[in-house]
Design a binder for these strands. Structure first.
Lengths: 229, 229
DNA sequence: ATGTCGCTTTGACGTATGTCAAATCAATGA
DNA sequence: TCATTGATTTGACATACGTCAAAGCGACAT
């Protein structure tokens, strides 16, 4: 049983949408576990018994193809949930999950309906909402992979990390470049060269440290998409 | 009002899952419209008022990026539905849809709950099921785009069209090669050259006609992925 | 029949990305 | 501290793919 009194549900979109009753009902049956970097949380093809929520650290969703190659599908920070649809329907999950840092993960049984009024409706709507977001995320990735090249995808990723500010910006990549390369659909060597090309646009990187001189310059790159000459 | 007596719901997965009562309740309020090739059904960003079902012909789901490029996300045959999640939540749809052949499309209001018992539950579960399938489809595409090259993606597409048989196989592409190129994430010229490379593996194509000499040979290509020398 | 328009193919060439190898650097444990 | 392991970077080269141009082909309307 998970001590939900110490959990800040405000940082978890999926739990925020529930009424306090239903939320506590779910949380009272929650399990929580810590994982070391590199540990596997679950594997594609397994029946999803629970919905998972990243409470701390980062989790990577990925798939392994027949020939053994790995495709990173998403990197989830604390607060993000996954396997919602599969867990609600007790279906097979189509993705595997692995800890890419020390992390803590909560396992929620959403398929066993609790006794609260409106539990079914509330959980359904929260899951629908999360599924909708994840679907849009996948759509966005397919769009990027079919239209943009590696430098453009890296640019968009950096912009998503650097907020709405202007001028200079220092940031630390939330995970290793090997993982980022997988996420962007390229090899580490190619990512390294993509960073190299961005030097001309005021981006310096040393390991996981990244400095952007002018965010506006990067935004222009992303928007126009044709300034790479 | 749509004449549902003339509609074979057995061919529509989403409708099959509903009880006759709820199905007829939904269908009694359905609208149906025909579209000419090239006509737009709906645009990304619009609030989805209805769930759509392709009754006849083919529909293309796509997104247009900021710089004007188009990415094809899916090509839907008769029986397939789309915009389910957005319609149920009356949210904004993240994709645009266009007829890629003469086609007939049904528009279903799934957000306005009908009076039947279990209507909410049934519709929810049908939508969840469809959403789950679509999510898996997008996951599969991201995986393919990140791992495989154009020839491999074309191979998998051809195999998906050619069933479980053995030996030779004749088939007709269900839509134009321009659309197929977009779906596979490449330019028409590259698709043409991908077909060219498959000639060495017993695949001949002339316009939309395709002949596969040995399906087994293609399957080996897809499975191993390393026989392209 | 004939012309037009759009789809398809092909060639030539440039860019993007993968592969292999090696060197450097950072983190970790003995 | 030292050694080991893995991450990162760089170079050299091969393959994959896009771009531009031109030609061929098909569907369709006049």
């Amino acid at each position: 049983m998970f001590d939900f009194n110490h959990t800040d549900t405000r940082a978890v979109p999926l739990l925020e949408q529930l009424s306090p009753e239903v939320r506590q009902c779910l949380l009272s049956k929650a399990r929580c576990r810590s994982f070391a970097r590199g540990e596997t949380l679950c594997l594609q093809g397994e029946t999803a018994e629970t919905l998972k929520i990243v409470m701390d650290g980062w989790v990577k969703l990925y798939r392994v193809s027949e020939n053994g190659s790995e495709a990173v599908l998403a990197t989830l920070p604390a607060g993000q949930s996954f396997d919602e649809l599969a867990a609600l329907r007790r279906g097979r999950s189509s993705v595997s999950a692995e800890a890419i840092s020390e992390c803590r993960v909560m396992f929620l049984d959403v398929a066993t309906i609790c006794g609260c009024d409106n539990a079914y409706r509330e959980i359904n709507e929260a899951v629908l909402s999360a599924a909708s977001d994840h679907f849009d995320g996948m759509v966005h990735q397919v769009e990027q992979l079919k239209i943009s090249n590696g430098v453009e995808r890296l640019t968009d990723f950096l912009l998503s990390l650097s907020g709405n500010g202007r001028g200079g910006c220092d940031l630390v990549l939330p995970f290793e470049k090997v993982v980022l390369a997988g996420m962007l659909g390229m090899k580490p060597e190619s990512l390294s060269r993509a960073f190299g090309k961005l030097k001309a646009f005021g981006v310096k990187s040393h390991n996981r440290q990244v400095r952007i001189e002018k965010i506006e310059e990067l935004r222009a790159l992303s928007g126009q998409g044709s300034a790479f000459c």
